[in-house]
Design a binder for these strands. Structure first.
Lengths: 138, 138
DNA sequence: TTTACAAATCGTAACCATTACGATATACTA
DNA sequence: TAGTATATCGTAATGGTTACGATTTGTAAA
């Protein structure tokens, strides 16, 4: 999802476009990887001294609800990335830099009747390790 | 993993077998599902009034390190279950009761050369929803 | 442009899961 | 049964997250 798509989504839902919101979306839309609330806070703090955690978390939740961001839970901490938008896929996630790589396979294609009497709400497939550049650096 | 397997594992590694440890292992080995530290604490508190969080968390970590328990991170909270032990597989996890069902498919079988220059450390495939009994109850 | 007001942010405190540590109790070994 | 290393308790601290009254800001109407 691009910066403009995200801005449109916000405005179409009647939310105000603030400087902080634009900066948050910019932060995620220009980086292909998962970031924590703390990562975002520190990035924002540089430009908006004294920014409140309330602002950071409220907007992370809002953007997640609007599908501008997607999230995953790693080591009991939430991580966020810009929503890829295009058709369903999963990710490799680098343990060091949070960078991602798209994986165009989905195990649900093969789930068949394994969960016949179950209600399926969601699923997660993630591969963890080191991306080529972190691998080389370490 | 059975209660006895877990006790042997502990003793083979030189750890003491305490009443609390036995009760913790029993709690997990007799329930097929994911439980939080709080779930365990409340279960233990009934029998061992005033049990310390230190005891709960220290043993959860120890058991995890010894592969007696496996863990997953859901909604930024760690959940634990007894290690299944038999050959590699994944789980359906019920959003209400934490119960699990084994899924004998693994997307890594199809990963091919998708991550050629990457180091792969770990992966996760989980399906979430309602198990048949929670589905009926709700 | 200015005004008016709903919405967003700040400053800060509280909450919850988790970790940590000195003092005490317990399991195991000899 | 005694000695010692280890486990537990009691409690405080930490880190991520949530919450809220007071203030500021974006937007739309005048």
């Amino acid at each position: 999802m691009s910066l403009n798509d995200a801005i449109n989504t916000l405005q179409n839902h009647g939310y105000k476009m603030t400087h902080r919101r634009k900066a948050i979306i910019k932060y995620f839309s220009t980086s292909d990887g998962y970031r924590t609330a703390k990562d975002l806070y520190e990035h924002m703090e540089a430009k908006y001294t004294g920014i409140s955690y309330d602002t950071v978390y409220r907007n992370l939740h809002l953007f997640h609800d609007l599908d501008i961001l997607e999230s995953t839970s790693l080591n009991a901490e939430k991580h966020f990335r810009i929503n890829c938008g295009d058709h369903h896929h999963h990710h490799f996630i680098c343990n060091l830099c949070g960078g991602t790589k798209k994986l165009n396979i989905c195990p649900m294609d093969d789930i068949g009747t394994l969960l016949k009497n179950y209600t399926i709400d969601d699923h997660k497939f993630e591969v963890y390790g080191l991306c080529p550049s972190c691998k080389q650096a370490s």
